[in-house]
Amino acid sequence: MEIREVLPRDAIPSIDDPTFEASYFGAPGDEAIVVDSDPPRAYPLRILSYHEVVNDAIPRSSDPTDEPNGSAGESDPIAVTWCPICWSALVYDRRVGDDVLTFGVSGNLADDSLVLYDRETESEWQQTSGRCLRGPLEGSTLSLRSSRLTTVGDFRDDHPDGLVLQPVRGGPGEPPERVYDMAPYEGYRSRDAFGLHGMRGEGAPRAWDRSDIDAKTVVIGVEIDGDASAYPRPVVERAGGVLVDSVGGVSVVVFADGDRLSVFEDPGFEFERTDDGVYADGASWSIRTGVADDGRALAPVDSRRMFAFAWQDIHGSDSMHAPESETDQR
């Protein structure tokens, strides 16, 4: 692994005192990281691309039966993180042992992945893996928290009471839609080149030794009990938009709908992709939320959504789910 300094520490400022409202300055089609809370919260990538980490504390459910690890009315400290180079949207618990950490942007990259640092110990953490690379907490790993990537418009449809992260930049004469300009990042997304060179033209271009998928193919990865597998979007689509697999002895079902990818525990149903979701066991199920029209809900599986090259940097080429696998379809 290569760790290199690209910017001074905190040159990209984290958001440490986030505010939320029902309103959003951008377009309904803008993507956002969604975290279940009471009410649910959305963190638009348009804002995250200019801050890369939000230190937040989200309220727990008002229903005590939903909170096996704590009491209703309390909150959980989380870090909502985004690496625009790896296109990785990940949410972590900020608790490590008895400590609650506050994260900032170190200015370093580890194999082109954002490196966070915590202000309490100054340890450095790779965003795509959650592992501490160096510092007093070296060897620790942040706990992943369930989240999903969707559009602000779909978030509103799914959660009419939901709240959206508000911008911290912009004002009279400098509207947030101008300050938070996604054009540079969307430009990177559309180019073949990847990594820091692809984003900023710095350093040598990286090679990609696969022909089955592109380096910037979006994958959703699952890691259970040391077993890791990533599911490229085209592979799931070729399986009919529904793919069943086993990771670490756990049966999972992966859904795809355009750029949307989601992973849930497999209940053993015969899912069939439809125009507006999936159908199984006499009900229609949302690909985004895993909730059925009869009120049942699939259990989400913690997952990591990113570009294929970033996943392969962490887990190697053999961890990519092969299209020919017999488990692609029942």
Results as ranks from 00 to 15, higher is better:
residue 74 E to M: 12
residue 314 I to N: 04
residue 116 L to H: 03
residue 83 C to T: 01
residue 26 G to V: 15
residue 224 I to E: 12
residue 105 V to D: 07
residue 101 L to H: 00
residue 257 D to S: 15
residue 280 A to Q: 11
residue 220 I to N: 05
residue 268 G to M: 09
residue 157 D to M: 06
residue 108 N to P: 01
residue 223 E to N: 07
residue 221 G to N: 09
residue 136 P to V: 06
residue 178 R to M: 12
residue 243 L to Q: 05
residue 59 P to I: 07
residue 320 M to S: 12
residue 183 A to M: 06
residue 31 E to I: 01
residue 245 D to M: 07
residue 231 Y to G: 09
residue 115 V to M: 08
residue 257 D to F: 09
residue 142 L to R: 09
residue 68 P to Q: 00
residue 243 L to E: 06
residue 52 E to R: 00
residue 111 D to I: 03
residue 27 A to R: 14
residue 252 V to L: 05
residue 103 F to I: 11
residue 247 V to P: 13
residue 127 Q to F: 10
residue 301 V to T: 03
residue 77 P to V: 09
residue 273 R to N: 12
residue 219 V to Y: 02
residue 49 S to L: 06
residue 255 F to W: 05
residue 308 A to C: 11
residue 212 D to H: 04
residue 154 D to C: 04
residue 184 P to F: 10
residue 146 S to T: 15
residue 283 A to I: 02
residue 214 D to P: 03
residue 118 D to Q: 00
residue 297 A to C: 03
residue 215 A to E: 02
residue 171 G to Q: 08
residue 227 D to P: 00
residue 315 H to G: 00
residue 274 T to C: 08
residue 215 A to P: 07
residue 225 D to E: 14
residue 301 V to M: 00
residue 226 G to S: 10
residue 79 A to T: 01
residue 233 R to P: 01
residue 21 E to L: 14
residue 257 D to V: 06
residue 282 G to W: 05
residue 93 D to Y: 13
residue 126 Q to F: 03
residue 145 R to M: 15
residue 123 S to M: 09
residue 207 A to W: 02
residue 7 L to D: 12
residue 80 V to F: 06
residue 87 W to S: 15
residue 16 D to R: 13
residue 28 P to R: 05
residue 114 L to G: 00
residue 262 S to N: 09
residue 263 V to R: 03
residue 23 S to K: 09
residue 183 A to K: 10
residue 301 V to N: 03
residue 196 L to N: 04
residue 134 R to N: 07
residue 234 P to R: 03
residue 52 E to G: 00
residue 196 L to K: 10
residue 52 E to F: 00
residue 278 V to R: 04
residue 35 V to Q: 02
residue 25 F to Y: 00
residue 174 E to I: 09
residue 18 P to R: 05
residue 234 P to N: 10
residue 143 S to V: 14
residue 243 L to M: 10
residue 244 V to G: 11
residue 283 A to P: 08
residue 189 R to T: 01
residue 27 A to E: 14
residue 287 I to V: 15
